[in-house]
């Protein structure tokens, strides 16, 4: 911990039978950092998080949290951490207070301290009014706030969040994000967050590890990750064509300079291209099919573009095999499928 790292991961591997979910990854997380694991479903983010939070035993490699080995010193690690997982860890038939009391009592916190802390936490997420109502009657947003403060009962040094905004409406997502940010700034809590939401990663994380197929394929700050695109000869282009047809899309996709083509709506394409001739080539291809270009714009790269750029554009990730592509207006299709939003 002298080097400022609160988490150190070395050659961590998890296999389920013959399937390698996490493939020999190594990284460090600095104390006080918000660290994001970004990737499609099935990339191995959650499994990594479960190993770090002592819930799963690594097949190979080691991980330490606060200097303690997650396997050999699991009890010490557990005292330092809190987890918010994709599945909410709250009991619907218990009231808000009872839920917090139950989980708090497992940490051997003295009674009066625990009482005080529960009141504070409920106040913090504006649930004081509902403290004696059964959690089953809450809205999803309220339940997720409960779920988050539940993880804070032991005042953890490290907070693990697994897809904390999944299934939440935009407003609740913003609330949760703000709360995490506040916690990190005021308490100095180190936060490890997994997400497949580019927005979450972009707005929250100090550093982001892009995970695909169990491997970390890029790790840097959001700004630096974007430089991978803006620094090279890759461009992001928004292309609006009044009479967009599948035939036209196919011919754009067939272009050598096009790395990824996604359809955003009935007239708009989103392209990742490279090379000096890219603009010309695209215009030629569209013209050849009698396409009418209404807008052509060079965009600032987003994390999503970075992701598409690095992972390549062939269909090869497990998320796509699990969720069949939906065709229709407003749905994207093309070289790089909808693996990230």
């Amino acid at each position: 911990m002298d080097n400022g790292n609160i988490i150190e991961v070395k050659n961590l591997t998890k296999m389920f039978g013959k399937f390698t979910a996490v493939d020999d990854i190594s990284f460090d997380v600095k104390k006080g950092e918000i660290f994001g694991l970004l990737g499609p479903n099935g990339a191995g983010k959650s499994t990594t998080l479960r190993m770090l939070s002592t819930l799963s035993r690594p097949t190979k490699g080691t991980a330490t949290v606060g200097g303690y080995d997650t396997v050999k010193n699991d009890t010490e690690v557990r005292k330092l951490i809190g987890i918010v997982s994709e599945k909410m860890i709250i009991y619907n038939r218990l009231t808000a207070r009872e839920n917090l009391w139950f989980f708090g009592s497992l940490f051997n916190i003295p009674k009066d301290t625990l009482t005080k802390r529960i009141d504070e936490l409920l106040e913090l997420v504006q649930l004081t009014k509902w403290k004696n109502a059964q959690v089953g009657t809450f809205s999803t947003g309220m339940r997720q706030r409960m779920n988050v403060v539940r993880a804070l009962l032991n005042m953890p040094q490290v907070l693990f969040l697994d897809e904390p905004t999944l299934g939440l409406d935009p407003q609740s997502s913003v609330e949760i994000r703000d709360f995490i940010k506040k916690l990190n700034q005021e308490q100095g809590t180190t936060v490890i967050i997994t997400t497949h939401m580019m927005v979450d990663a972009d707005l929250l994380c100090d550093r982001i590890a892009i995970v695909d197929h169990g491997k970390i394929i890029a790790l840097d700050t959001s700004t630096n990750l974007k430089k991978i695109i803006s620094g090279g000869d890759t461009m992001i282009i928004k292309l609006e064509i009044a009479n967009l047809t599948p035939d036209l899309i196919a011919s754009v996709k067939a272009l050598k300079c096009a790395d990824a083509v996604t359809q955003e709506n009935s007239t708009r394409l989103h392209l990742i291209v490279h090379g000096e001739e890219a603009f010309d080539n695209i215009i030629d291809a569209v013209r050849e099919k009698n396409g009418k270009i209404t807008t052509m714009e060079n965009l600032q790269p987003s994390l999503e573009d970075v992701f598409l750029h690095i992972t390549g554009h062939e269909v090869r990730d497990s998320a796509d095999q699990k969720i069949p592509m939906q065709q229709g207006p407003g749905r994207r299709f093309g070289g790089a499928p909808r693996r990230v939003r």
């Binding site: 939070s53 002592t54 819930l55 009890t75 010490e76 557990r78 005292k79 951490i81 809190g82 987890i83 997982s85 994709e86 599945k87 909410m88 860890i89 709250i90 009991y91 989980f103 497992l106 940490f107 051997n108 539940r150």
Partner: peptide, 13 residues
Amino acid sequence: EIGTMDGMMVAPI
């Protein structure tokens, strides 16, 4: 299955 077991499992008990 509902996931609450993880809550008990990460407690130092």
